[in-house]
Amino acid sequence: MRLFVPLFMTFICGMIIILQFFVPHRPFSTLGERLTDWYMIVASAAIFLGAVNLLQVHSARIRFRQKNWQYSPVVIGGFLVMMAAGFGWGVADGRPFDWMFQTMVVPMGATMFSLLAFFVASAAFRAFRSSNWRATLLLVSAFIVMLGRVPIGDVIWRLIPGAAASSHPNLVNEIAEWIMQVPNMAGQRAVMIGASLGVVATSLRMIFGIERSYLGGSD
């Protein structure tokens, strides 16, 4: 019974959603719409679970003086300040919540992601050192795409005598575009088709109760 109710619910919800695509009439269409709306609301409750978990983890860090516990009040403080600003003054443009988001969260997010450029570059350098011809192919492909996305790529090409007057004055950019449109698309399509078949198989396993790990791992 402990597993029957959730498994039955998964089956019913999954089947209603699938059937509404094949039978777009009542009752499946209305049930499908309802379920899709409810899905968004119930799934959004998970973010509260994550927030409470974050607070629990950092409170425990402070209580037990775990490693780097001094920074945990910063996490909790940042979280509470944003919550207070959101609840207290709303989220409209120019309000404290929006001001903190624009002046603090946005620059921090952009900087964090831009830091990845350095780490990706250093990881790539290490990967390319253990080279075989396919790794070299990967490197060349990445290099051309990067060069084709910046003006210096075509500037370098035009330094070659006669290149600027040729029928391909922007050859580096053209090659980069071709790589993106042809071999890259072929590879991406193969990955997408393979992954989508995996999604279909996993979804069916979940709907029919074969895959139950999301309920706690027991069979």
């Binding site: 998964t10 899905y39 997408m192 279909v200």
Partner: peptide
């Protein structure tokens, strides 16, 4: 709640992913 999310999510992704990505 998890069962509802998983069931609905699986149903949605099955059809939409198959349509768009396959």
């Amino acid at each position: 709640s998890l069962a509802m999310i998983v069931g609905t999510g699986a149903g949605l992704s099955l059809v939409t992913t198959f349509r768009t990505n396959c």
